[in-house]
Simulated assay, not measured.
Amino acid sequence: MQRSFSSYNNNHSQHLNYNAADPGIVSYLNIGKDHMEGGVEERAFSMFLVGKGVGSHVIDGKPKDVHEKQLHFVFSGQDSNWALNEDKGLEIDTLHLSETVFETFGSYLKYPFSHYMKVGAITLTEESFEKFKYEFMNIAEELEDRQGGLLTAEFRLKVIMLMLSREIYKMHYEKRMDSACLLSRFITLVFENFREHRDVKFYADELAVTTNYLNILCNKHLDKTATAIINRELLAEIKQYLIASNLSIKELATLMHFRSVSSFHTFFKKNTGLTPKDFQNKYMGTDISTTISEDLS
């Protein structure tokens, strides 16, 4: 597993590397212009916070103008091609999460990944930019403090993902307030009730709409069914407990309000392709405090 935080600044250079054999496998570096230009298929989820820079960034063939106070984001498997004007000055902080780590924190992106992929880049207000900058820079310091800072860095990764979701909400959904408000209320209800309530009818009743209408809205604006959104949160929670807790499978099934261990087993395998025990064994060597891992896919 590889995870790196990179600060791109043409006036500054430093390198901090941990041994690749270390469980944390964390590396930091300042990269030069040759690392940003050209085409590459991303092997990580990457965020680029542009403090200063002019040029273009083509993601999967779609060009995005590059200018200051922007956040660009590229998913694993997407083609990313940068062309930057170095004469204009460059200051780009980047945060990269490997595919494994992204499985952990990806669920904090509260809308379907397809929405983020379509957008690719957003222009931030001064206030939002400074908030992202603060989190980016502090995460580097805290991950360097391998003894005491990793848990705080884990929290910051969650915050960054939620901040990105908030920016997407402001950009995409505030213009469609009726549908957006209902979907926002639905997602909030899911966060609060997914352990006890997995039936779409419960949420539709709470929102005073039909299940069919709720599904239509979810499919139209989130590219997922209402059930898929509920199940995603439930699976994220289950995976976290499987890795991080000492609960037995039976205890976890009870905690998540499944009627039996058998139904819990069937639900998990249907949605992940693995039994709960197989999933637990696969990630048993993962130490959350040192790898920043909760496997929230």
Score class of each variant (00 low, 15 high):
R3D: 15
F5C: 08
S6A: 14
Y8S: 04
H12G: 12
S13R: 15
Q14V: 12
L16C: 03
N17C: 11
N19M: 05
A20L: 02
A21L: 08
G24L: 08
G24E: 03
I25R: 04
I25Q: 04
Y28V: 12
N30Y: 04
K33S: 00
D34T: 15
G38F: 14
G39N: 11
F48A: 01
G51C: 02
G51D: 05
G53S: 06
V54T: 07
G55E: 04
S56H: 11
K62F: 11
K62M: 09
V66D: 00
H67R: 13
H67A: 08
H67M: 08
K69N: 13
S76A: 10
G77M: 09
G77R: 04
W82E: 06
W82C: 08
A83L: 02
L84A: 05
K88H: 09
G89T: 14
L90T: 01
I92T: 05
T94C: 11
H96L: 02
H96W: 08
S98P: 06
S98G: 15
S107N: 08
Y108H: 10
K110I: 13
K110W: 12
F113V: 07
Y116S: 07
V119D: 01
A121F: 10
I122A: 09
F129S: 06
K133G: 02
Y134N: 12
E135R: 11
A140V: 08
E141Q: 15
R146G: 11
Q147R: 12
G148P: 02
L151H: 07
T152Q: 13
T152D: 11
A153L: 03
E154P: 00
K158W: 09
K158E: 08
V159A: 09
M163K: 09
E167W: 05
E167Q: 12
R195V: 04
H197K: 14
R198V: 03
D199S: 15
D199I: 07
V200H: 01
Y203V: 10
D205C: 00
T210V: 05
T211I: 03
L214C: 05
N215G: 06
N219V: 02
K224D: 00
A228N: 13
I229Q: 03
I230D: 03
I230C: 07
L234M: 09
L235Q: 01
E237C: 14
I238Y: 01
K239Y: 01
Q240D: 07
Q240N: 06
Y241P: 04
A244R: 09
L247D: 08
S248V: 02
K250N: 07
K250A: 06
E251Q: 06
L255N: 10
H257Q: 11
H257A: 11
R259L: 05
K269H: 04
F279K: 13
F279N: 05
T286F: 03
I288S: 06
T290Y: 13
S293Y: 04
